[in-house]
């Protein structure tokens, strides 16, 4: 255990259940305390779970193309709920159609996410980034 708690789930009306299970397993293996909210998770559920568990980060997955609509306002709600500056990560098939990922990334960073990941990203990449951001293994 690395002492860090992450809350994760698939946002909105999205029911893609496999990816989040893989992520949950990978993060647990890497030493995180994972609170997996599963599929069809509302913004409020991430926030409430993060408050009760004193989470260090929120990880949002979206695979059905409506991520932009579902994720908008999450940062503001976190601020309102007292989760000031909690690191937020997002990944998956975030938008419909073939759009340049640089543009997609910009949209999500502007929305208040710390990092955004394109489809096909290996869990190891996210684990490495989040470990670094949260100072895992550093004195």
């Amino acid at each position: 255990m690395n002492g860090k708690t992450v809350v994760m789930g698939v946002i909105g009306a999205d029911v893609h259940a496999i990816g989040i299970k893989i992520l949950s397993h990978a993060f647990t293996e890497a030493g995180f305390n994972v609170v997996n909210l599963g599929v069809m998770v509302s913004q409020e559920e991430y926030i409430e779970a993060a408050i009760e568990t004193n989470a260090d980060a929120i990880i949002v997955s979206s695979l059905y193309g409506h991520g932009e609509m579902d994720c908008r306002g999450l940062r503001e709600k976190c601020e309102e709920a007292g989760l000031k500056d909690i690191p937020m990560y997002v990944g998956g098939n975030l938008v419909v159609g073939k759009r340049d990922f640089a543009e997609v990334e910009r949209i999500f960073l502007e929305m208040g996410f710390n990092r955004a990941y394109p489809p096909g990203t290996a869990p190891e990449k996210g684990i490495a980034d989040i470990s670094k951001d949260l100072g895992v293994g550093q004195p």
Binding site: T5, N33, I51, E52, T53, N54
Partner: peptide, 9 residues
């Protein structure tokens, strides 16, 4: 009550 074990203190 309040907080999961290891959660909010």
């Amino acid at each position: 009550s309040g907080g999961t074990d290891g959660g909010n203190k």
